[in-house]
Write a protein that binds this DNA or RNA. Structure first.
Length: 154
DNA sequence: GCCAACGTTGGC
DNA sequence: GCCAACGTTGGC
């Protein structure tokens, strides 16, 4: 089982939104970056677990653990003309963008902040993608050792 | 296929 | 709001 980190801006979609959703699950869609798309399309499997990470907010960091409950399918928002993520170049015959469905497994007891992660950027968390300068990927794989270490901070 | 211009992301 | 770091676009 592979681990992941999924980025969201809490002002757009928060863990509260996820907790309030039916079955505490949602379609993880709207990803419009090819590298992130490829992770979703080619590597994310049902049963995988991911950290939910808050960005562009007062306290960036990991806030929850989610589980992939349905693997890859074409991103429906790309087909919806009224959706801000609509993409005329994506057709149902040849989809360009993909989604998966995630369910809230549990909230962390507290936010594991970006500042805490950065404090270990040169030892336990060396080469963690989210800590790379200028990182903008919204979907990144997490090494097993990193996953365990981050949870040990909780 | 190169690369400059432009837009977006995201920490601070 | 600033700005660095990227990704994308489009002229050539």
């Amino acid at each position: 089982m592979q681990h992941w980190l999924l980025k969201t801006e809490p002002s757009t979609f928060s863990v509260d939104d996820l907790a309030a959703a039916p079955r505490k699950s949602t379609s993880w869609d709207g990803v419009r970056n090819y590298q992130a798309r490829n992770f979703i399309r080619d590597q994310i499997k049902k049963g995988d677990e991911a950290f939910l990470y808050y960005s562009s907010c007062a306290l960036p960091g990991v806030v929850a653990i989610v589980q992939v409950v349905r693997a890859v399918y074409p991103d429906p928002t790309a087909f919806d003309r009224r959706d801000p993520h609509y993409d005329a170049a994506s057709s149902k015959q040849a989809p360009r963008w993909y989604s998966c469905e995630i369910r809230l497994k549990r909230r962390l007891k507290r936010v594991i902040t970006l500042a805490e992660l950065q404090a270990h950027a040169h030892d336990e968390l060396a080469s963690m993608m989210i800590l790379r300068a200028g990182n903008r990927l919204s979907v990144t794989p997490i090494e097993d050792a990193h996953w365990r270490f981050i949870l040990s901070l909780e």
